[in-house]
């Protein structure tokens, strides 16, 4: 037998190992599920880690209310298939409770507001570990984050006080009120995720594939026309063939023009593409330290 793990097998084995460490080390873990391809990949990895048993954690979805309809359809169908528990935290509830205020202006988005809903949901259910699908290749601040990333009771990440993380030993010890964000696919790249999805024949929400959609061009990027986007007479709605490379909510996720109808097309497109994935996220463009600042504040 050939004793060589292919890179996808190695990444898979590492992620399964990390998920099982979460199960073994924490009392009340949760898996943060966004409906995006990375968290969908996590669900598949959790099946590999724990079947035929149940997942030792529920899935948690922070719902901004500005979702692509396709994401919610996908989520509900997936939950039916896997038979696990889903908890939804609504940003609308945080708005109604007066904990956050809706942004105004043309580029208004609920992206920043969901941090509050996330932290409230963690507190309500007393989650001590939240598994997320973030990857180190996405962004500079993420490149420095640990696989077990401790957050204080205010949900904050302190990049200067990270615990050393050696070998395959993950220290999940925390004080009451703190929690740990765990990133099992830290070492995967965007292309790795897509290759894995292809290999495992994982179904994805349809918005990842090219389709005709009404869009407007804003700040040089294509945004899906929707009632959630503050539009005015300067915004010209046109029909284009597009797909989405990441799935945030409708106000912060830009589309790319694409004719990639199949997963093979997408992999070809990404291999050839010279625009990195977060380049299509308006939320990172604010400043060079945009992600670092949001992470310090408790973002995913």
């Amino acid at each position: 037998m050939k004793h060589q793990l292919d890179y996808l097998d190695e990444l898979e084995a590492e992620a399964i190992y990390i998920l099982r460490e979460v199960a073994g080390q924490f009392e009340k873990p949760a898996l943060l599920f966004s409906g995006g391809k990375d968290s969908i990949t996590l669900v598949r990895l959790a099946e590999k880690a724990f079947r035929p048993g149940k997942f030792p954690f529920p899935l948690v979805h922070i719902d901004t209310g500005h979702n692509f309809a396709e994401t919610i359809e996908y989520r509900d169908a997936m939950m039916k298939r896997i038979g696990e528990k889903l908890i939804v935290g609504y940003v609308q509830d945080s708005i109604d409770e007066g904990k956050v205020v809706e942004q105004k202006g043309k580029n208004a988005s609920r992206n920043a507001l969901q941090t509050v809903t996330l932290l409230d949901t963690i507190a309500k259910y007393q989650f001590d570990a939240c598994i997320g699908g973030a990857r180190r290749d996405e962004e500079k601040a993420r490149a420095k984050e640990r696989i077990f990333s401790v957050r204080d009771e205010f949900g904050q990440w302190d990049p200067k006080r990270q615990r050393p993380e050696l070998w395959n030993i993950f220290n999940g010890k925390i004080h009451k009120g703190e929690n740990v964000r765990v990133f099992p696919i830290s070492n995967w790249t965007e292309l790795d995720v897509w290759n894995y999805i292809r290999r495992e024949k994982i179904e994805l929400p349809t918005i990842y594939f090219a389709h005709e959609r009404e869009v407007i061009t804003r700040n040089g990027q294509l945004m899906a026309a929707s009632p959630f986007l503050n539009m005015d007479e300067q915004d010209v709605v046109e029909k284009r063939n597009v797909r989405f490379r990441t799935v945030g909510d409708m106000t912060c996720t830009a589309a790319v023009e694409s004719y990639a109808f199949q997963i093979d097309d997408i992999i070809d497109e990404i291999s050839a593409s010279r625009i990195s994935e977060r380049g299509a996220r308006m939320d990172d463009k604010v400043s060079e330290a945009a992600m670092e600042d949001r992470k310090k504040g408790g973002y995913f």
């Binding site: 180190r136 290749d137 490149a143 790249t189």
Partner: peptide, 10 residues
């Protein structure tokens, strides 16, 4: 460089 930064390429 203060901390360990991970970089990926192939």
């Amino acid at each position: 460089t203060i901390d360990v930064a991970y970089k990926y390429f192939q």
